[in-house]
């Protein structure tokens, strides 16, 4: 079976540390991620989850520590170069181009050097590619949703647009920074199959999430951050049994 083959980790994070003034946002965080795995990152508010995303993808330079993608050292590279290598991210606070139609939003990633390297094999018109991609993430073409201006779209679509922007780059790793936050139950329910489909396709995913129930349906492995430190790592169910994790989420038992 496949389990017999030794898989090389696709992402290796080593001793990442980052402080903002006196606040340790990340403290010595390390983990490995195998190709095709889905890693969940959870933790209370302010535990350093988004800082982790920002340091991996080059939007913030870490104080110390390193991130490797396969054998390439990502730390110190500029953010667009990291995206260019196929390590893409979504933003927790969505960043659409509001003055443009939804499908025109995808022209930017499709115009990028990485997408153009792939385009030679598939060829064609970027507008058509963009609309196909939007359909894939659930923009109903028949209702002309891809043609609507981004400023007219509700949050659910904008979150999908964030994902579509990553997909346009044909990524190897997607780091989703709370794609489910702010969505209704039905919106999440319709988005989960999309995540599962990406997983099936062999895309490596890191999912920062607060919605544990939904996350645990797709995650192979979970790490828990608290005050910038990794306090637990392992399979979802086991991690939630962990005493330290319970304390981080629910607080100390003060013995009342």
């Amino acid at each position: 079976m496949k389990e017999g083959i030794e898989k090389e980790p696709i992402i290796r994070v080593r001793n990442l540390t980052k402080s903002f003034g006196g606040v340790r946002a990340l403290n010595n965080v390390s983990f490995d991620l195998l190709e095709g795995e889905v890693l969940g990152v959870i933790g209370p508010n302010g535990s350093g989850k988004t800082t982790l995303v920002n340091t991996i993808t080059g939007f913030i330079k870490p104080d110390s520590g390193e991130v490797f993608f396969k054998d390439i050292r990502l730390t110190g590279l500029s953010n667009w170069k990291i995206a260019d290598m196929g390590v893409t991210r979504t933003f927790q606070i969505v960043r659409p181009y509001l003055s443009q139609r939804a499908f025109k939003n995808l022209i930017v990633p499709l115009w990028s050097p990485r997408a153009r390297r792939f385009a030679s094999s598939r060829g064609g018109d970027r507008d058509a590619l963009a609309i196909d991609l939007l359909e894939e993430v659930g923009f109903e073409r028949d209702a002309y949703v891809p043609y609507k201006f981004a400023s007219a779209l509700p949050l659910g679509y904008l979150k999908r647009l964030e994902l579509a922007r990553c997909l346009a780059l044909r990524p190897e790793v997607i780091i989703c920074d709370e794609v489910f936050s702010g969505l209704s139950m039905s919106e999440i329910a319709s988005m989960l199959p999309l995540i599962e489909r990406l997983h099936m396709r062999g895309v490596t995913l890191i999912m920062i999430e607060h919605r544990l129930r939904e996350l645990f349906r797709v995650a192979d492995k979970v790490i828990v951050l608290n005050f910038g430190e990794k306090i637990a790592e392992g399979e979802p169910e086991r991690v939630m049994q962990d005493e330290k994790v319970r304390r981080a989420y629910l607080g100390e038992d003060i013995g009342l």
Binding site: K81, A83, R95, P96, Y97, K104, V108, W111, R165, A168
Partner: peptide
């Protein structure tokens, strides 16, 4: 397409960086 990228830089340059564009 290049004009759309220009507009992207104006609207949200962080998203343009995240799209692998310098």
């Amino acid at each position: 397409d290049i004009g759309v990228v220009f507009a992207g830089v104006k609207d949200n340059d962080q998203a343009v960086f995240a799209s692998g564009v310098n």
